[in-house]
């Protein structure tokens, strides 16, 4: 890992990061087809709770937002909403090739290409779709990163908020979610 060599956290932040690393609540938001491999990861065969991870009902409660696969523009608006509702420290784990470069949907009019243009992704798990073992391995990697204080996507988002916002508006037109009753 060569992300950031110097570690300038104080001792409280280190303790806090220890707790953050060992108790990761994820937002239960199945954004794409990668979500089909989450039930096996969570249930008895692979049992994600061993790592201290568990699903949570709302973004306020969650620590990590799992982007499980491709994102259509319609979903991305909601994902941005959800992400901004989360409390820091917050992390994003992106699944599958689709979040890296659009994957198999590279030429689709509805899905975005690269996710970290719009949101700060802490960890990518490659594959289409990632197997549960890979997902577990990715989570282990995330835990290590948090322990070392390297999962700093949320800080990056705060510091470069204008840049992210501009990208979001360029691609989406507007981020505000409107009335969907169409009446």
């Amino acid at each position: 890992m060569v992300l950031d060599e110097k570690d300038n956290r104080n001792v409280w932040e280190k303790i806090g990061d220890y707790f953050s690393a060992n108790s990761i609540w994820m937002k239960w938001y199945c954004t794409g087809c990668g979500a089909i491999e989450l039930p096996p990861t969570m249930t008895s065969r692979y049992d994600m709770e061993r790592l201290g991870m568990g699903p949570m009902a709302t973004p306020r409660q969650a620590d990590v937002l799992l982007i499980t696969g491709y994102l259509s523009t319609k979903t991305l608006r909601r994902v941005i909403y959800s992400y901004e509702q989360m409390n820091s420290p917050r992390f994003i784990v992106a699944f599958g090739s689709c979040t890296i470069n659009g994957g198999i949907y590279y030429d689709s009019y509805a899905t975005i290409g690269r996710l970290d243009k719009y949101l700060p992704v802490d960890l990518y798990i490659a594959g289409c779709m990632p197997r549960p073992e890979v997902v577990m391995n990715g989570f282990n990697e995330l835990i290590k990163m948090i322990k070392k204080g390297q999962a700093k996507g949320w800080k990056h988002y705060q510091e470069n908020y204008e840049w992210y916002k501009k990208n979001q508006l360029d691609s989406l037109g507007e981020v505000i979610i409107k009335d969907e009753f169409h009446e």
Binding site: T75, R78, S108
Partner: peptide, 28 residues
């Protein structure tokens, strides 16, 4: 179930009106 949305008007616990909102998984 999955990435889907139902918008509804409720009165108490009873759903008075519901509208499905698909398209979150639309990939073309």
């Amino acid at each position: 179930h999955g990435n889907y949305s139902v918008h509804m008007y409720v009165d108490g616990d009873i759903i008075k009106k519901a509208r499905p909102t698909p398209g979150f998984l639309h990939r073309g």
